[in-house]
């Protein structure tokens, strides 16, 4: 996937004013990381309840 992102960005950059694209891709990766963290937290709760987490 990282190869795809790099080549996608490079091919896009070659076509014109696409310099923003790499920042756009970085933003979408950051957003996915947040979503994965929320999913991980929920899944942990499904197995272990609130055990060990802040807010217990």
């Amino acid at each position: 996937m990282s190869d795809d992102i790099v080549s996608n960005t490079q091919s896009a950059a070659a076509e014109g004013d696409y310099r923003w694209y790499k920042y756009g891709v970085a933003t979408l990766i950051a957003e996915m990381v947040i979503a994965v963290c929320v999913c991980g937290y929920s899944l942990y709760m499904a197995f272990a309840g609130l055990g060990g987490f802040p807010g217990k």
Binding site: G24, L28, I29, E31, M32, A35, V38, C39
Partner: peptide, 9 residues
């Protein structure tokens, strides 16, 4: 969260 934050991807 997944439906919103994976949308740009």
């Amino acid at each position: 969260f997944t439906a919103s934050l994976f949308r740009p991807f």
